[in-house]
Nucleic acid binder design. Structure first.
Length: 258
DNA sequence: AATCGTGACAACCGCCGTGGG
DNA sequence: TCCCACGGCGGTTGTCACGAT
């Protein structure tokens, strides 16, 4: 007999969160903090399971989240860290304040992985792909190829895809290519790795908010900082889809978080 | 204008580690 | 020591937007 589910899923809502649900969860956590995720949905008046609430908070509602595309620098750091930690996304994400493991994992799977393959670098081992494999990869892209459709189609158009206007498109890839060999020797990374080896807490650039939120011993007034809310508000403003939260910002002021 | 393919990312699922009883 | 509940994590799937045909 397997484990009991984390919650009784009967009658619980699934799928995308609505603005109203976000508002309820946000208000509840800001007022009460986080004690037990299992009880939060009930207390907050949500028909969601605790896990869903936790995920929504961590990946989307947390005030300290950094929004928007990952910069080239961040992308390079992800590659470096992945070479060291593998698919330990939470570990990697801990080096990027305001970024979530889910975000980094998605970015890796949808973009970085493909770019590395395109550059002839195995995204798993970070070692150069054998020339044979490389040629196969190129062959696979030819129209008359009878090989199965590869996971990625390393065409130039793929690099300079629809997002290219946000960066330099193929130039960015070229930069990545030229930089990659040096990445793993980057002194900063070595320092990180050394620090990781010496102590698990020595490198901790992450926002203090998350720690304080997860620490029920800390007083409520201590975990919502003025600059945190302002920072969050600024990030919210930058997101078109977040316009509906402007009112919520005002409510935060109402609750005294200013 | 309709359909299809693809990419991005939000959300879910199930396993694992941990701490308390 | 064992059992259980919980939070955390990584893999996977679902959904939506957008461009191509």
């Amino acid at each position: 007999m397997g484990r009991q589910p984390c919650c009784d899923k009967v009658g619980l809502k699934r799928g995308p969160w609505t603005i109203e649900e976000d508002r309820k969860l946000m208000n509840f956590i800001l007022e009460n903090g986080i004690q037990c995720w299992r009880t939060i949905p009930k207390l907050a008046g949500l028909l969601r399971c605790g896990k869903s609430c936790r995920l929504r908070w961590i990946n989307y509602l947390r005030p300290d989240l950094k929004r928007g595309m990952l910069s080239e620098t961040e992308e390079n750091q992800i590659i470096q860290l992945h070479a060291h930690f593998g698919n330990r996304w939470a570990k990697i994400a801990s080096h990027f304040p305001g970024r979530t493991d889910n975000e980094i994992k998605n970015h890796w799977n949808t973009r970085i992985k493909k770019r590395l393959k395109l550059l002839g670098v195995d995204p798993v081992t970070h070692s150069p792909i054998e020339p044979k494999e490389k040629s196969e990869m190129i062959t696979e892209t030819t129209p008359d190829s009878t090989s199965p459709v590869p996971e990625t189609r390393p065409e130039t158009s793929d690099i300079t895809d629809k997002k290219s206007e946000m960066n330099a498109g193929s130039d960015e890839t070229m930069n990545l290519s030229s930089n990659y060999e040096g990445l793993l020797e980057n002194l900063d990374v070595l320092l990180w790795m050394n620090q990781e080896a010496n102590t698990s807490t020595s490198y901790s650039p992450s926002f203090s908010l998350e720690e304080s939120l997860s620490n029920p011993l800390m007083g409520e007034s201590s975990y919502i900082q003025e600059d945190t809310i302002q920072q969050w508000g600024q990030s919210v403003d930058s997101m078109l889809s977040w316009d509906d939260f402007n009112q919520l910002q005002e409510e935060l002021y109402y609750f005294g978080y200013r």
